[in-house]
Amino acid sequence: MAMPTGNGNGVLFPAMLQVTSSRLRLSPNSEHKPEAYDDLQLEFSPLLFSSLERYLPPAMLNLSRDAKIQFMRDILVRYFPEAERTRVQKQREYRERIMSNYQPLYKELQTLDETKFFVPSFLQAVNAGTEESLRKIIIEPTPGVYSFEMLQPNFCEMLISEVENIERWVHDTKFKIMRPNTMNKYGAVLDDFGLEPMLNKLMDVYLRPMAKVFFPEISRLALDSHHGFIVEYGADKDVELGFHVDDSEVTLNVCLGKDFFGGELYFRGVRCDKHVNTVPHPEEIGDYTHIPGRAVLHRGRHRHGARATTSGQRLNLILWCRR
Rank of each mutant, 00 (worst) to 15 (best):
G8I: 01
Q18S: 15
T20A: 10
L24D: 02
N29R: 09
E31M: 09
D38W: 15
L40E: 06
S45L: 15
L48C: 07
L56R: 05
L61E: 08
E82Y: 04
E82M: 08
E84A: 12
V88S: 10
Q89R: 13
E93N: 08
Y94C: 06
E96S: 14
R97C: 09
S100N: 15
Y106Q: 12
E114D: 05
K116G: 06
F117T: 14
P120Y: 01
P120N: 03
S121L: 01
A125P: 03
A125V: 03
G129P: 08
E131S: 05
K136V: 02
I139F: 05
T142G: 01
P143F: 04
L159H: 10
S161I: 04
E162Q: 13
R168H: 10
W169D: 10
W169M: 10
H171C: 09
M178V: 05
D191G: 12
D191F: 00
P197K: 03
N200K: 10
A211F: 04
P216L: 00
E217Y: 06
H226R: 06
G228W: 06
F229M: 04
A235W: 01
E240R: 07
F243W: 12
D246I: 11
V250F: 08
G257Q: 07
F260M: 06
F261M: 11
E264C: 06
F267N: 05
R268S: 14
K274I: 08
K274L: 13
I291L: 13
G305S: 10
R314V: 11
